[in-house]
C-alpha cells in the first residue's frame, strides 16, 4: 500500500475525470493521473512511467528507475501483493 508500484500509461480512458489505463507487470487497470499532469494535454502522458499508489499515479519516473523499483518490489514480495490486490478488486467489482 505504501510503496506503490511502477506502471506505464498506455491509454487515456476518461479525459474529463483524468483517468488513464496503466500497465503494471502485464496487468491493465484504470488509474487517476491528476497528480502527474502538468500544463499539457492529457494525451502527452501516453508512454510515460509513473509510480502508482492505490490507483493514483503519484510521480513520473524514467524507465530505468521503473525497472529498478520493480526488481526491489519483487524481492520484497510487494509486487505480487499489489498485483493480487488489483486482480481481487476487479473480481469483486465484476461479481
Amino acid at each position: 500500500m505504501c510503496l506503490g508500484i511502477p506502471g506505464q500509461i498506455v491509454e487515456i480512458s476518461d479525459a474529463a475525470r483524468k483517468l488513464a489505463i496503466v500497465e503494471v507487470m502485464g496487468v491493465r487497470r484504470q488509474v487517476n493521473v491528476a497528480c502527474i499532469l502538468k500544463d499539457e494535454p492529457i494525451e502527452a502522458l501516453i508512454g510515460a512511467w509513473s509510480l502508482i499508489h492505490v490507483g493514483f499515479a503519484m510521480s513520473r519516473i524514467n524507465e530505468e528507475e521503473a525497472a529498478l523499483t520493480l526488481d526491489i518490489l519483487r524481492q520484497l514480495g510487494e509486487a505480487q501483493e499489489e498485483i493480487e490486490a488489483m486482480r481481487a478488486s476487479e473480481r469483486m467489482l465484476a461479481s
Binding site: 488509474v31 487517476n32 492505490v54 490507483g55 499489489e82 490486490a85 481481487a88 478488486s89 469483486m92 467489482l93
Partner: peptide, 16 residues
C-alpha cells in the same frame, strides 16, 4: 466487508 485495491474501486462499487 470487501477488500479493494483503491478508493476509486470503492467509489465504483457505490455507483453500481
Amino acid at each position: 466487508i470487501r477488500m479493494v485495491y483503491s478508493p476509486l474501486d470503492a467509489l465504483e462499487l457505490a455507483r453500481r
